[in-house]
């Protein structure tokens, strides 16, 4: 609606174009270029066609890592979304505690990924870490470097600790935007607390929940820093996620071709899953088109 006709606008957009070109398009083109070729270094390239893609898709190593990623994201979402909603619901809506709660909630978000990893790495150590030491003191055999379950549990708790706040803040924003009249009407209608949640709060949070879901999925699916710092992908390959595997291939083994193909597949998966989530969730609760057009 608010259109003004002025070509100067292009001048303002050009820097962004350049930035996007340098930071995104050129690297992606390079990756695409690598993914179809083979090299033995010294800038000598051979055309490899779709060979790397087929290799990657057939490789058990890729399947395992992908499986771990999906499992990890699934667990994370199952914990963080309900937990985030629950915390948001129990936060005060007005009064002096509101800013206190908001700041407390925002704190974990301000800590860089690698620091989070390091904190938990130390926190969980049996010799000097508070958590690790306490656990062994009360007789629980806890060791994230040797035990697969412990390693997973630690990474999951770490992620929940780090990122549930984001879900909380988004849900909270959704909740406070619900007009008071809705709650009054529900009280007058004799609605139970569950009904208020199910028929007022949840529908009104739908928008922010979609965003929370997508953000948390993308982020958790691309997890790298924390397991890298904490376990380095171990014990064995048990916490080697796609991103860690990718780095191992590209930098550790210098297999640029397969690594490029893998990263493209990786990206397509993220895009695809996000697209499906978004379409499905946006349509939850809306009318079928033919009903609307009556």
């Amino acid at each position: 609606m608010e259109k003004t006709y002025n070509n100067k606008a292009w001048l303002l957009v050009i820097p962004v174009f350049l930035l996007v070109a340098i930071s995104a398009i050129i690297p992606i083109m390079t990756v695409i270029n690598y993914s179809f070729q083979d090299t033995f270094g010294k800038n000598v390239f051979f055309w490899a066609g779709t060979e790397w893609f087929i290799d990657v898709l057939r490789s058990e190593r890729f399947h395992d890592a992908l499986g771990r990623n999906l499992l990890f994201s699934f667990i994370i979402l199952c914990i963080e979304i309900p937990l985030g909603i629950a915390i948001a619901l129990s936060m005060p809506k007005k009064g002096p505690w509101v800013p206190v709660c908001l700041v407390l909630m925002a704190l974990p978000l301000l800590i860089p990924w690698n620091v989070v990893g390091t904190i938990w790495q130390i926190f969980g150590r049996g010799d000097i870490g508070l958590l690790g030491y306490t656990m062994s003191a009360i007789g629980i055999d806890y060791n994230y470097t040797n035990n697969v379950f412990d390693a997973w549990a630690t990474i999951i708790i770490m992620d929940v600790w780090h990122w549930t706040s984001l879900v909380v803040l988004l849900c909270y924003a959704g909740l406070v935007s619900i007009p008071e009249a809705y709650y009054q009407a529900a009280r007058i209608d004799g609605a139970s607390k569950w009904s208020v949640f199910r028929f007022i709060q949840l529908p009104k949070m739908q928008g922010v929940l979609i965003i929370a879901f997508l953000l948390r999925f993308m982020d958790s699916f691309m997890i790298y820093t924390e397991p890298f710092v904490l376990t380095g992908g171990g014990p064995g390959n048990s916490t080697t996620f796609l991103s860690i595997d990718l780095v191992k291939q590209a930098i550790g083994q210098f297999d640029l071709g397969p690594a490029a193909a893998m990263s493209l597949i990786y990206q397509l998966i993220v895009l695809l899953v996000c697209y499906v989530f978004f379409t499905v969730m946006s349509n939850v609760g809306t009318d079928k088109p033919e009903e609307v057009e009556e």
Partner: peptide, 29 residues
């Protein structure tokens, strides 16, 4: 409390349960 008084109220802005049908809205109370 409002719920103990057996009153009904219509507000300035329509308050309806979005995800329910018209019938379900009326059935709700």
């Amino acid at each position: 409390q409002p719920e103990q008084r057996n009153i009904a109220q219509v507000f300035q802005f329509p308050v309806i349960y979005d995800t329910m049908t018209v019938r379900q809205n009326l059935e709700f109370p």
